[in-house]
């Protein structure tokens, strides 16, 4: 059953939780716009080697006001499966020091999915909370936080009770900011409350719980 195990993984994980890095880390300035692309996903054993799933998405950020950023994203890997997976949310400045070097950002968002095959629709709210620390004069920063997808359905396949109400994760990352470009690296620990041993994907997680994820992002500022 080894072959099917590795192939099914690719499909399943395209829709696994938190298949992208945090969208808004430090809210943009009012009027600032940014487009970006992300690559990465949960870590699995594939042919004996640990790899992050190569899931992709593109995103757009726009500073609506001071401390308020709009985010929108499309999960491009899902599109290849015939599933439109869009994501829209806000990045809200919850706290920031006067020096603006340390702050807390809260990001509520919504994931919407729709497939062209059977016209099934899914909606998943998501909430991230993270703090960032700008550690140098140049606006490079470290960040860390936690978040969760929220399962709205009370039942799953075959009318079984859905016991996963939340699918939480913790994240740490780094942003390397240049005048026009931003490079992001992020690690996540997904679904850490779930035993991963009886699942088709060979997730890599500490003590067989959850899955570690690795993500890379690149974005470019358009207008300020």
């Amino acid at each position: 059953m080894g072959i099917i195990r590795t192939t099914v993984i690719l499909g399943c994980l395209a829709f696994a939780t938190a298949c992208a890095p945090a969208r808004v880390i430090k809210p943009l300035e009012k009027g600032e716009k940014q487009i970006g692309a992300n690559l990465g996903g949960a870590m699995i054993n594939y042919g004996g080697a640990p790899i992050p799933l190569p899931l992709t998405s593109i995103n757009y950020l726009q500073g609506l006001d001071t401390g308020l950023t709009l985010s929108a994203a499309l999960h491009t890997t899902d599109i290849l499966f015939g599933v439109m997976h869009a994501e829209a949310g806000l990045g809200i400045k919850a706290y920031q020091t006067k020096s603006e070097k340390f702050g807390v950002t809260i990001s509520p968002s919504m994931n919407l999915m729709y497939d062209i095959w059977e016209q099934n629709f899914s909606a998943y709210p998501q909430l991230d909370a993270l703090c960032y620390w700008q550690y140098a004069e140049k606006p490079n920063l470290f960040y860390g936080g936690l978040g969760s997808w929220v399962e709205l359905n009370k039942v799953k396949a075959h009318n079984e009770v859905q016991t996963n109400e939340l699918l939480p994760y913790i994240m740490v990352g780094h942003q390397f900011n240049r005048p026009k470009w931003t490079f992001t690296t992020e690690a996540k620990y997904l679904g850490f409350q779930h035993d991963n041993r009886d699942l088709v994907p060979d997730y890599i997680g500490p003590s067989h719980y959850g899955a570690l994820g690795l993500y890379f992002g690149i974005s470019r500022r358009l207008i300020k």
């Binding site: 099914v8 399943c12 395209a14 829709f15 999915m113 497939d115 095959w117 075959h158 996963n164 088709v200």
Partner: peptide, 18 residues
């Protein structure tokens, strides 16, 4: 569909993958 839901942890329809 169960395979997908087990793997993702979400109540996703099987039509998303096959």
């Amino acid at each position: 569909e169960v395979m997908l839901q087990d793997a993702s942890g979400l109540s996703l329809p099987g039509s998303y993958i096959s």
